[in-house]
């Protein structure tokens, strides 16, 4: 195990976060605060409680998930795409590091960053609505699993992308819509029966539902199913990353 290399990559990626503090931390916090103002205060005041929870509090897990997913993807995809773009990837490929060490370091740094962000958003939410976390350990489990899983997804996108626009493509066109339609701002029960079934094909539903359960013990789908689906995504993304490194896809000619 090349621990110094893993430490070097992790430190390097975290230093990048420090340099881009404004766009990394502050802008998601501001946009989340705006969501609270718009959905929580302005619209939420006209919506009844959802399953006994005030609407403002109800959307907190979904908002954290929204940031966690998009930030995990963008952190990890940018982290590996940038060395490919500038050419500095030569150093990584010629270093005595295993593929596993590379993935753990990049994904670990991206996941750390998005988890920090998630916790900051949680704290910000605490300023707007009274918070209650019924199962803090499970909350952390969902937070970590989701951050790692979607950082892996981001890593895959960063290797697949051959331009900056493609980096933005998946988060903007797929992840954000799926998150909005995955129950961030509503309970699936509020939908007509047909759309409830359709929604179950949205993988993000399971993440948000499980995460919300850890807060309020209310869930759209069974918690075990949520956990199983998260583990399934993790496995699928790990398999794709393993394939990338075995074949050298977009990394090695």
């Amino acid at each position: 195990m090349n621990v110094p290399a893993m430490r070097a990559i992790y430190k390097f990626e975290m230093a990048r976060t420090g340099r881009t503090l404004m766009q990394s931390i502050i802008s998601p916090v501001i946009s989340t605060s705006l969501y609270f103002v718009v959905f929580g205060a302005a619209i939420g005041a006209r919506i009844q409680q959802v399953e006994g929870i005030s609407y403002g509090a109800f959307i907190v897990p979904g908002l954290i998930m929204l940031s966690l997913l998009t930030q995990s993807i963008s952190n990890a995809s940018f982290g590996i795409y940038f060395p490919r773009f500038t050419g500095t990837i030569y150093e990584l490929l010629s270093a005595p590091v295993s593929y596993l060490e590379i993935v753990v370091s990049y994904v670990g740094a991206a996941a750390t960053k998005s988890m920090i962000l998630g916790i900051i958003i949680l704290a910000t939410a605490g300023l707007f609505v009274p918070l209650k976390i019924a199962h803090p350990v499970w909350m952390i489990v969902f937070l970590v699993l989701t951050a790692v899983t979607f950082s892996l997804f981001g890593f895959i996108i960063g290797i697949w992308a051959d331009g900056f626009e493609k980096l933005q493509l998946v988060p903007l066109l797929i992840v954000t819509p799926l998150t909005f339609l995955g129950g961030s701002f509503y309970s699936i029960d509020m939908l007509p029966p047909f759309w409830q079934t359709v929604t179950l094909f949205n993988p993000v539903v399971y993440l948000i539902s499980g995460f919300r359960w850890s807060f309020y013990e209310i869930a759209d789908v069974n918690v075990a199913v949520s956990l199983g689906m998260t583990a399934l995504f993790l496995t699928v993304f790990l398999a794709i990353v393993a394939w990338i490194f075995t074949t050298g896809y977009r990394l090695k000619a």
Binding site: N2, P4, A5, R7, A8, I9, K11, F12, A15, R16, R19, T86, T88, E91, L92, A95, P96, V97
Partner: peptide
């Protein structure tokens, strides 16, 4: 790495090589 300092980028290389 355009945005890194000279010291940081050289130290990074050393770490990367174990």
């Amino acid at each position: 790495d355009a945005f890194e300092s000279v010291w940081a980028t050289v130290s990074f290389s050393r770490g990367l090589f174990g």
